[in-house]
Nucleic acid binder design. Structure first.
Lengths: 211, 211
DNA sequence: AGAATTATGTATTAATCGACACAGAATTAA
DNA sequence: TTAATTCTGTGTCGATTAATACATAATTCT
């Protein structure tokens, strides 16, 4: 099946990857059409004809990000033999990703919709959903740890996953602020230091006073 | 000393507070002049005559935020008798602040410059400096814990402070995403669970393999 | 070849951005 | 009262935003 009219003069995949890196670096609103078309090497009519709109382009860029950058991080979850090892590897892999030397610091999923413009609620919801999925994957990995026997059965899975997600989101902000990889690894280690206490403590109502 | 010309017809402090809440809710770029002047109840020439520019207004708003909202959080650091208690109180106070029921969720210092528009580098630097000061205050509080004897002398102060700052920054993001106060308190508790391990471990080079 | 189809480049659209010109209003000083 | 001063409201400035109109180029189908 051959397409009929004038053939496209640019590589769609390459243009999408350029768009992804641009969104990664500047966020959704920060990546203006002028910046995007310049980075992609095309004019705006070509962009709209090929991708529909800026928002649809962004969604495709996010999907590409998930399929490439983020997949490596999530892959580490499955590889490790214990839940703790998986979280440790995830943190280290995440820091490596966040301090990308090519200039795209931070996580597209976290910083892409950083300014909450109400008219771009679709963007916000789309990313929030993706973040939710990642947290769910983390919960599943911890649950597997219970099945494997390396995590106590009474561990508060949701709280533990929320904690490590919060740390990774905070690391995204600090990466964008120029934090060194070394200092971020230290933060990851510090978070991991909570592991034993977290899995040991049952999901009790919070005792605000302690001995 | 009486001012000469036509008197100002609005309350400067009230207008500044309205601006602060607007910046708090929308961030620097999200708070457009139209939104600001509407919230402040004045026209843009009055805003410029009174505050200079949008950027100067933002800096004054940040200062007001520090002097009011954030001061309460920092005050808890000094009140507590131990460094651990101070961090615990800080986390709880921070969560309360981040889940402000008036609709301003998250921290102005963290989310105010969320989109890194290169032309607004001054805004970014200003907030980054304020965040740095807060982290320094946290380091000082832990250092005091060493002096008071409730923190081991070999504790890695900078790493501990960076860790809890990272958690609080992550909590800002999750607050903006609508996380419940309950879930955020759980995250704070989880972070605090790392305390004993953190202060116990000397600032050694990271042993990536563990028993 | 000629019609049909699709992409490209130039130029432009309406809307919004931050910022300000200007005239009139409100006050004090002389 | 008159001049000087300062603030207010209307209106608008040039720049930038995302998104297209339009004519032309390049390809396939008949």
């Amino acid at each position: 099946m051959v397409v009929r009219g004038r053939p496209r003069s640019f590589d769609r995949d390459a243009a999408l990857q350029a768009a992804m890196k641009t969104f990664w670096q500047f966020g959704y609103e920060g990546a203006s059409m002028a910046v995007l078309t310049d980075a992609m090497g095309i004019n705006s009519p070509s962009l709209y004809a090929c991708f529909g709109s800026k928002e649809q382009l962004f969604r495709e860029a996010v999907d590409l990000y998930l399929a490439t950058e983020d997949k490596k991080t999530r892959g580490t979850l499955a590889e490790q033999t214990t839940a703790r090892g998986a979280v440790e590897a995830m943190l280290q892999r995440s820091v490596a990703n966040l301090t990308d030397p090519s200039g795209c610091r931070g996580c597209l999923l976290v910083l892409g919709d950083s300014n909450a413009a109400p008219e771009h609620g679709g963007i916000h919801q789309y990313l929030a959903q993706r973040r939710k999925e990642i947290q769910a994957a983390l919960e599943e990995r911890i649950k597997r740890g219970i099945a494997d026997g390396d995590v106590p059965a009474h561990a508060n899975i949701k709280a533990i996953a929320a904690f490590f997600m919060t740390v990774m989101q905070g690391l995204s902000l600090r990466a964008r602020d120029g934090a060194s990889r070394e200092s971020m690894l230290q933060v990851g280690d510090a978070a991991l230091a909570a592991w034993e206490a977290l899995v040991a403590k049952p999901a009790a109502s919070k005792p605000r006073k302690r001995a």
